[in-house]
Design a protein around this nucleic acid. Structure first.
Lengths: 187, 187
DNA sequence: GATTCCCTATCTACTGATAGGTAGATATAT
DNA sequence: ATATATCTACCTATCAGTAGATAGGGAATC
């Protein structure tokens, strides 16, 4: 029997979906209550019922994104390190290629100096938990300085998303990250 | 005898300086004519005299940033590849550590889907010229698939800036990019 | 030498649009 | 009756952008 902390209403989910897409296209200042409301066919005042302030909405956005991300990753010891790293890369690739969107936390990470504190803290937590997950994988693989490797992996993936989108060349993401799993396990 | 295309007035330079800092902190929507004007002690209407629209200001921002960046890089064959790559990394490091700012084009690259076309085009041109510069270095070093290596270098540096800022841990940038010059020249 | 004209650069005052946010009425369903 | 969810109507602040007045400095003309 599942017992979610708070069950989100359909409307709340719609709001999050639309806001997430807008945020992942243009950043924290690129989604507005009015735009979201217009797209899902309600009034902007109604959004405040579900998310009292924009800060709250931003927090909920990062929270859901982080949970989904970690869910998709699964346990860091589910399989061999090389396979776990391939899975890690494929999640970024899917976001870029299939959704045609930037990573939400990559976007917010770039803007972090101007985000409301609760949002920036959750963004930091996203990266912290990703680093920990990767650390576990690299430790299992017996590499030196796992934290360094973990940072390299995240940096290359976030940077590759930006570069591929800026160059409007999604193949570039594949070229830049294709060998990442094997390379990052080299001693 | 130097003959600059257009000499920028002191005020125009001040506007660009303030706008660049704001943009590199929070993105394209994080600088406003009013904020810039307030900081340099003029009225926002006066900014329109120097830069008619925000789009024009954004373009000028990326243009100046790109020119300065390429100037700092110098010719790609100035020295040995390993030295040129070290120089490349050090320019990013200086921006992050000394200025405490994100790369302007890394920021705009993330937001590229929502930028005015002239700004996004110039942002793309920044990366194109950076890739070309790195290609030249890697070709001189005789590595295979220079474009792939160039993409990896840019991706790792832009991503490392985001990660270090998000984690509020500037040493992380150093750890993630410290070996980059030597590593990227390995066959 | 004084006057006229023009260019640069700024100002005041304004516009219409949009931002996030609030109060309170209303409808629906349990 | 109460809780949920939405609405209308409004607020203040800010956004980019415009029109037109003003001031100062040359340079050319008288």
């Amino acid at each position: 029997m599942k017992k979610p902390d708070k069950a989100l209403s359909d409307t709340a989910i719609q709001i999050l979906d639309v806001a997430e897409r807008m945020a992942r296209q243009g950043g924290y200042n690129a989604f507005s209550f009015r735009d979201i409301a217009r797209e899902i066919g309600i009034k902007s005042a109604s959004i405040h019922y579900h998310f009292p302030t924009k800060e709250d909405l931003g927090e909920a956005l990062v929270e859901r994104y982080t949970n989904r991300f970690l869910d998709a990753l699964g346990a860091a010891d589910d399989a061999e390190p090389i396979e776990m790293l391939s899975r890690y890369v494929s999640i970024y690739r899917a976001a870029l290629i299939e959704q045609q969107l930037m990573c939400l936390c990559g976007m917010f990470g770039a803007e972090i100096a101007k985000l409301p504190a609760p949002v920036s803290e959750r963004t930091r937590a996203f990266f912290e938990r990703n680093l920990e997950w990767l650390d576990t994988v690299f430790k299992a693989a017996g590499v030196q300085d796992p934290r360094k490797r973990s940072g390299e992996v995240i940096a290359r993936l976030e940077g590759a998303m930006i570069l591929a989108r800026a160059m409007n060349d999604m193949d570039l993401f594949q070229r830049v990250t294709g060998d990442l799993p094997a390379e990052s396990l080299r001693s």
